[in-house]
Design a protein around this nucleic acid. Sequence first.
DNA 1: GTGAAAGCGCTAACAT
DNA 2: ATGTTAGCGCTTTCAC
Lengths: 351, 351
Amino acid sequence: VVVSISANDFSDELRTTISDVARRAGVSPATVSRYLKGAPVKAEDRVREAIAALDFRPSVVARSLQSGTTKTIGLVIPDVTNPFFAAVVKGAESVARQAGYTTSLFNTDESIARESELVEDLAERVDGLILAPVSEVDPVPERARSRGVPIVFLDRDVPGSAFDAVLVDNEGGGRLAAQHLLEHGHERVGIISGPLDSTPGRGRFEGFREALGEAGYELLAECVQEADFRREGGYQAMLRLMGLAVSPTAVFVANNMMTIGALQAVRELGIDVPDALSIVGFDDLDLADLLAPPLTVVDRPMEQQGVLAMRLLLGRLDDSLSGDPRRIVLDVRLLPRGSCARPSSTLLLSS
Amino acid sequence: VVVSISANDFSDELRTTISDVARRAGVSPATVSRYLKGAPVKAEDRVREAIAALDFRPSVVARSLQSGTTKTIGLVIPDVTNPFFAAVVKGAESVARQAGYTTSLFNTDESIARESELVEDLAERVDGLILAPVSEVDPVPERARSRGVPIVFLDRDVPGSAFDAVLVDNEGGGRLAAQHLLEHGHERVGIISGPLDSTPGRGRFEGFREALGEAGYELLAECVQEADFRREGGYQAMLRLMGLAVSPTAVFVANNMMTIGALQAVRELGIDVPDALSIVGFDDLDLADLLAPPLTVVDRPMEQQGVLAMRLLLGRLDDSLSGDPRRIVLDVRLLPRGSCARPSSTLLLSS
DNA sequence: GTGAAAGCGCTAACAT
DNA sequence: ATGTTAGCGCTTTCAC
């Protein structure tokens, strides 16, 4: 019988410690520690040699326990699958790396419960948090504050709480969408909004409705479908909208994931865009201009949002930033492509 | 002058420890520790009360130092922006959560240097790693092994190293693509491959070439464009392919990001798909069937890859899995949509 | 400049 | 069932 030795059996590994290094170099652990810190040390060469020979790496865990610091930033986002957040991460990461921080990502799946757990135990594992809170009535950030973790809000806010935040002009985005639709002559329009208790959900909705109102049009209740920022939600919402006795001739979909779902629904229904239905989305998509027709969207500087959030956070950590919470609000712009046209029914009814 | 008190000043927070709880409950720290562990404790009520009153949470850092365990799994992936990895993460996360593990994500940006740094300092912060190594000649995993971290390879392998791995049938995928193109009558085909020193890069390329060879066709050197699995790489590669004196009538793009770039190039060049050029991609895209034309791709079970990788890893950790490395290879399948047709030049030249 | 000793917050022996 | 002690690996006074 051949005894198979597991290639994955690490059970009796023992860690090389600072004392091992000290012993080999013929100095005390304290001296090695000093060397590590960059302080002047006589036996520098021997210490360096010992470290190399033993392949020693200081334990970050022990360091954390001692210093209370981890040199890592946590990014807590609601959906890793959403390209917007992927872009944000890219931006944030590059800034962090330059400052010598590691960034580590966590997914809440739009669940307050998961967010809560996560933030709670991240509190000691990170030096700071960039967080896109699930809801505007989210109690998590305040609890995190009481645990001593600096937080910067990303894209979503919790009004009344004094945290730094990097947001975008959601109202402006909603207005842009509405105006664009209005310009094309639409009168009966719909919206697939995000959760109205989230910053971008509410903001985009309100901007949209206001612009409509100012132009003398009302946004009918049945034409407002509140969904959850996810693909499936957008899909269902579009189905409901198109199932209306009198369905809208144009719809604004308030985020990228829902737009994908909504487009799927429209295609399954065999509805022609833009002739039978105009669509404007929020957030550009990689493939937006390769779609049939190319998708008109409200766009914003995604990576930049990550960059700014990380700068804010790092500023708090090194005290170069202090005082009252900073709020940064970035501009959005409309990218007109091919998914909007004049409403066909209007053509029939008017003049 | 009003002195503004910073809302973000946490400088003199002091942590509530197990001793504080013990003192308040009138027991020893050890007893509190036992209570935390779930062991029977007489003064259970008083301890519970004290914990609640003091809002105490045990320090995971101190626990880690003591136990060498972190109850977290690291996922190290080359590109957060790639929807394939996003899907994998979803799958892996759900399994981990059920087992009481937190999963935390790290991005290497296809850089061996970053991967190396990352794995090196993750070694002590995680109980195990799911890793998509940048290259097949990547020395990082072996170093990680020597640091005692169990690893499962995801999607990419390092041949000769004895690690668990969850892969897909890349060769099969390449063959499927080639056969599909062949069936449509293409004779001069091209490939935009990933790095040939990566598992999926090499595998898809070889499967593609072999299937072509078996059918009696040769894959010309100039029709092989090796890129980097990224959008921009795919874009440039397609530009080169279309700039050839005699350009291919069909091309296989070996991953999703490069496909997006390639499509962009094709559209800018004003080349008609599928009439002037047939395309098959690798990895399905959310919007694949909403493109004009809908994109034909080789698809695979993405979330499932994450699920299996996490199961393997967790199995190693709790010793329910032992012995030789496991290699799981998942099947792929072709999703024919609208981006392939008969070559127009062939129509002219043949019969 | 360098060593000895204490301690970060916790858990695991070892007693009792 | 519970307290005492020691120690995880490191940094940091405090002497010298």
